[in-house]
Amino acid sequence: MKGPLFYAKILLFGEYGIIKDSKGLAIPFNAYRGALKSSKDLEGAAKDSNANLERFYNHLSQLNSDKVSFNLEAFKNDIDNGMYFDSSIPQGYGVGSSGALVASIYDKYATDKITVLENLTREKLLKLKEIFSLMESFFHGKSSGLDPLNSYLSLPILINSKENIEPAGIPSQKEGKGAVFLLDSEQIGETEPMVNIFMNKMKNEGFRKMISEEFATHTDACIEDFLSGNVSSLFGNVKKLSKVVLKNFKPMIPVAFHKIWAQGISTNDYYLKLCGSGGGGYILGFTEDYQKAQESLKDYKLELVYRF
């Protein structure tokens, strides 16, 4: 048995904001992927994954929802026969490792599933997102459902609000100097504690004001610039966003990166932002000159995502 491939995702813009109904833009990232496989002799990561699928099966069998049902018998049977999720997507890195797994299980075991080939109306997209949110809550305690949706559809997705999502056309890549890149913090980040910190901060009126007046405003401007290909305006807005995040989201930025985050803003060689919930994993970088950013960040591992 070998299932279809499901890819990692990158939330270019909108981390935390989408919890509070501002815009977001997520794109598939094909450098990392996963698929369901099975083996008679499970060991190491495959054995761990098989045990994790058993726990996920228990979660799905207790889901009391009229939105989705699964062929649980087939799922359990495949687990007992050595099924595991073979994935190159790093866990705790903010690029959707659990999302790809959720998408693969929905694809294989959901009865009456919404397929990628049908006309994806807004209602169908919202229904899928809701189903994936229920499924993925097993991994994070609370999930928007966006990571699995992105992985399942393998399309860029524009989140206008909780009730308004649509596939997005992003400008094709150019062979320019500019780039979006991933910076490896070489630390694992856990989603749930970071989201809890954010939710606690949201009890503060000043923080809420900053989210709506600064964070969401800059995020929306970045998304508009990116989708319309307005690169010169984009970098100005990404810089503003990077400053706001450094000032207000310090607990989500690994301490070792506070200095290089500020350095990017002062030199304009690159601008950093959170990739996912933060706390470790990848940090997302934007630069008008990728070569210059590579020189400035020569002590770190960078990975190219998109060229301008």
Results as ranks from 00 to 15, higher is better:
residue 122 R to P: 06
residue 89 I to A: 06
residue 131 I to W: 12
residue 149 L to G: 07
residue 114 I to G: 11
residue 102 V to Q: 07
residue 156 P to A: 03
residue 89 I to R: 01
residue 155 L to Y: 09
residue 102 V to N: 05
residue 149 L to R: 05
residue 138 F to W: 07
residue 111 T to S: 09
residue 86 D to H: 02
residue 105 I to Y: 01
residue 88 S to Y: 05
residue 93 Y to D: 02
residue 80 D to M: 07
residue 134 L to E: 15
residue 117 L to M: 05
residue 95 V to Y: 13
residue 105 I to C: 03
residue 152 Y to E: 12
residue 136 E to A: 04
residue 132 F to P: 08
residue 126 L to A: 05
residue 138 F to D: 14
residue 146 L to S: 03
residue 82 G to L: 08
residue 159 I to P: 08
residue 108 K to E: 15
residue 131 I to R: 11
residue 144 S to W: 05
residue 160 N to E: 02
residue 157 I to L: 12
residue 126 L to V: 02
residue 129 K to W: 01
residue 99 G to E: 15
residue 124 K to I: 01
residue 140 H to N: 11
residue 84 Y to V: 02
residue 94 G to W: 01
residue 120 L to N: 13
residue 94 G to I: 09
residue 101 L to R: 06
residue 86 D to I: 00
residue 87 S to L: 00
residue 92 G to V: 14
residue 119 N to C: 00
residue 86 D to T: 00
residue 144 S to M: 07
residue 125 L to M: 09
residue 148 P to T: 05
residue 144 S to V: 05
residue 101 L to V: 03
residue 124 K to H: 04
residue 158 L to S: 00
residue 118 E to C: 03
residue 84 Y to G: 01
residue 97 S to L: 06
residue 131 I to Y: 14
residue 122 R to V: 12
residue 126 L to N: 10
residue 145 G to L: 06
residue 142 K to L: 10
residue 104 S to K: 02
residue 90 P to C: 08
residue 101 L to T: 03
residue 85 F to K: 01
residue 94 G to Q: 10
residue 142 K to T: 15
residue 149 L to V: 08
residue 137 S to M: 08
residue 107 D to S: 15
residue 92 G to I: 10
residue 154 S to G: 13
residue 121 T to I: 11
residue 141 G to M: 14
residue 160 N to D: 02
residue 81 N to P: 04
residue 137 S to G: 14
residue 137 S to T: 12
residue 93 Y to W: 07
residue 138 F to S: 01
residue 109 Y to Q: 14
residue 110 A to W: 13
residue 92 G to F: 08
residue 121 T to P: 07
residue 84 Y to C: 00
residue 158 L to C: 02
residue 113 K to D: 09
residue 125 L to F: 08
residue 99 G to H: 10
residue 158 L to R: 09
residue 144 S to H: 10
residue 97 S to P: 08
residue 138 F to P: 02
residue 84 Y to K: 02
residue 115 T to G: 13
residue 147 D to P: 11
residue 106 Y to L: 06
residue 136 E to V: 02
residue 108 K to P: 10
residue 93 Y to H: 04
residue 157 I to K: 00
residue 110 A to Q: 09
residue 95 V to S: 12
residue 112 D to W: 05
residue 157 I to M: 08
residue 83 M to Q: 07
residue 135 M to F: 09
residue 103 A to Q: 04
residue 92 G to E: 12
residue 101 L to A: 02
residue 99 G to T: 14
residue 114 I to T: 12
residue 88 S to A: 06
residue 116 V to H: 13
residue 142 K to R: 13
residue 123 E to D: 14
residue 144 S to L: 08
residue 160 N to R: 07
residue 98 S to P: 12
residue 123 E to V: 11
residue 85 F to D: 04
residue 97 S to R: 06
residue 142 K to I: 09
residue 119 N to W: 00
residue 81 N to M: 01
residue 159 I to S: 01
residue 81 N to Q: 04
residue 144 S to C: 07
residue 95 V to G: 11
residue 127 K to T: 15
residue 119 N to Q: 14
residue 114 I to A: 08
residue 85 F to Y: 10
residue 82 G to H: 05
residue 109 Y to K: 10
residue 103 A to C: 11
residue 126 L to H: 01
residue 132 F to R: 06
residue 123 E to C: 00
residue 123 E to R: 13
residue 91 Q to K: 15
residue 136 E to R: 04
residue 91 Q to C: 01
residue 84 Y to H: 12
residue 145 G to F: 03
residue 135 M to T: 11
residue 149 L to M: 10
